[in-house]
Design a binder for these strands. Sequence first.
RNA 1: CGGGGUAUAGCUCAGCCUGGUAGAGCACUGCGUUCGGGACGCAGGGGCCGGAGGUUCAAAUCCUCUUACCCCGACCA
Length: 570
Amino acid sequence: MRTSRFPLNTVKETPADAEIVSHQLMLRAGLIRKLAAGLYTWLPLGLRVMRKVERIVREEMDRAGALELLMPAVQPAELWQETGRWDKYGPLLLRMKDRHERDYCFGPTHEEVITDYARRELKSYRQLPITYYQIQTKFRDEIRPRFGVMRAREFLMKDAYSFHDSQASLQETYDRMYDAYARVFERAGLRFRAVRAATGEIGGSHSHEFHVLADSGEDAIAFSDTSDYAANVELAEALAPAGGAPAAAHELEKIATPGVRTMDDLCAKLGIAAAAGVKTLMVDGDDGAPVALVVRGDHELNTVKAELLDGIAAPLTFTDEARIRKAVGAGPGSLGPVGLKVRVIVDRAAAALADFTCGANADGFHYTGVNWGRDVELAETADLRRVVDGDPSPDGRGTLSIARGIEVGHIFQLGTGYSSAMGATVVTEDGGETPMLMGCYGIGVSRIVAAAIEQNHDDRGIVWPGPIAPFQVAVLPMNAHKSDAVRAAATDLHDALAAAGIEVLLDDRDARPGVMFAEMELIGIPHRIVIGEKGLAAGTVEYKGRQDAEAVMVKVGDVVEFLTQQLSGN
RNA sequence: CGGGGUAUAGCUCAGCCUGGUAGAGCACUGCGUUCGGGACGCAGGGGCCGGAGGUUCAAAUCCUCUUACCCCGACCA
């Protein structure tokens, strides 16, 4: 390919409203352009990358035995009403009406459609197991789309659905998908981690998320330094400290703390560590009455865990100040468990404290030297906090580290939820009838492109992993307009590389050298050949990998073979 | 949804407070010089100042409404 026929739409200035580096670079490198909030046009260069990701996904799905199909993006409301999601899905669902005033939605996912298909076509256990997948545009009407295609409203997703007549069969396909996902991300050249995302219940391996590791990732994942334990921080269990609370050594004392509202204030005022105090947070209970959640001063509440507790309103809602005052007689900033007349749930770590500090439920006062049992009843404990770096691993082996990741894949076992609701049953071996067990497996194809950049870039631009680079080699002739020899050599090399099946981009624009270098680095082409008149006179051209510090000279006749070697190395 | 902000050339923005000729940089066109790290000079083209209404002799500028976009919204006890 030549730049004269494949224009590079690069821009020098960093776009004002792009916050994260992948979004900035995708705009600057000319991969995408925004049409409206959360809607992007993929330019030819960006589409080449997305197609490569797509191809890898497709190949691995095929290898895993899944069958590709393509379902409509627009779906009738009736199906969603069958499963109750027409009402439950809320404003995330883009709804529309056709000319007959019939309700439709633009599919954010396809469980209903595939289950409808399955109930029509799959009648016997003999047809199982079977897995279908598609690569399809989805739409989710996010409240705040941002970060470019990382969290766009319209996006490209691979979704797969499997059907089974037994849990063992579902597990087998699930495991195969797990392996296929790992292969996809390996082949794409990304550093990733599969993490547990178990949905609370029976635990185990019922759901895994695949994260591309990047410091800018929105999700925090916790993993053990010695075992293979890895989980989303939201779900990682914080074990109770060994040994329980030490014996009380101090008397309960009420002290004036005017103006103190935050844990930081309190630590500064009293000269104590945050870990020696507790924070008391008020959230709404199911019945509307506030419930107090107590965590150690240096810990953070894990809202996912809190929401799952019995009697707590979901979604988790923090009680507003007026209602706190009504219930307690003091405002936030002076709350504590002592003498509190609402339900109190104490985090395991907070429950293991002795002689701790907390609010006195009177504005401007705190207690010190508080002890469970002596000063306040320890009625209820639970795992409420987010795990932190250095916590013991929940599987008992090693300590946890926290890394940041971008969720690019998610697999889970759905069970019979959809098949029961929609009557997708098969006849069993013994002649009975049973709803099919289902598995569901998603990969964010367009998000992978952004995640790859987030993980692989430098101050000059994108550093594509070879397998998903839009082109493998850039050929840059220096001052070709002044040198027939350079121009001829560049053209010959381009043709030879193309003939060898190497994706080459020849810059034939007669641009200044600095422009060529800067643009090719910005768009992240992994390999670069520079052809100059001097080198050519000596029968050589210059090679440099995108991340190499130094260039090397290569004989003109050896270039194709040299590059073939370089490419097979990644 | 709540709060805040922005809307002026293709892009990034100044001008608005204090009403009176619409600007800069980048990009684009032409010519010339330059040519191994996003060149320089000269000359150009390009605007219903987001939309509607109002105030005024006069509105990008003041007022009202409207639309779009952007940012923030548990970690606080």
